[in-house]
């Protein structure tokens, strides 16, 4: 699990060092992209821990979620509804859920039966 963290830090450094910025009007889309990405990362970590990882699910989940979230925002902007809230809430709660699973896994590493329940 150390390698993805190193990857994350490397990414942040690359992002801050690289010269260009996003156009201001796409700010919401990028923010949702970040959330979708973070959700996928935690989901990936979780499934790795539970040995349920499948590449197709991971990739389709990432792209599907990101695209759906951005479509929601696009629609929301044209209908004047804050649909981005829906995406933020869902991604946010999933982040916490995935994190909770990972946390439990690490805490209960010794006791096998608990892992199965979560």
């Amino acid at each position: 699990m150390l390698i993805p963290m190193v990857g994350l830090l490397t990414g942040i450094v690359i992002g801050i060092l690289c010269p260009f910025v996003f156009p201001a009007s796409y700010s919401t889309y990028v923010a949702i992209g970040i959330l979708a990405c973070a959700d996928s990362v935690l989901g990936g970590v979780r499934s790795n821990l539970f040995k349920q990882f499948t590449l197709s699910v991971f990739v389709s989940g990432f792209f599907g979620n990101a695209i759906l979230a951005m479509l929601l925002i696009f629609l929301g902007q044209h209908l004047n509804i804050q649909l981005s809230v829906a995406a933020v809430v869902v991604f946010g709660s999933r982040l916490f859920q995935n994190f909770a699973d990972i946390r439990r896994f690490w805490l209960n590493k010794g006791k096998k039966e608990d892992n199965m329940l979560m």
Binding site: G7, G15, G44, F53, L55, F58, V59, F62
Partner: peptide, 23 residues
């Protein structure tokens, strides 16, 4: 597979976070 793809995604995530932070 899992670790590699998660790592790639992590790098990607970090990059956008960094750029968005600057933006």
């Amino acid at each position: 597979h899992g670790i590699v793809s998660v790592t790639i995604l992590c790098i990607f995530l970090g990059t956008i976070i960094g750029i968005q932070f600057k933006t």
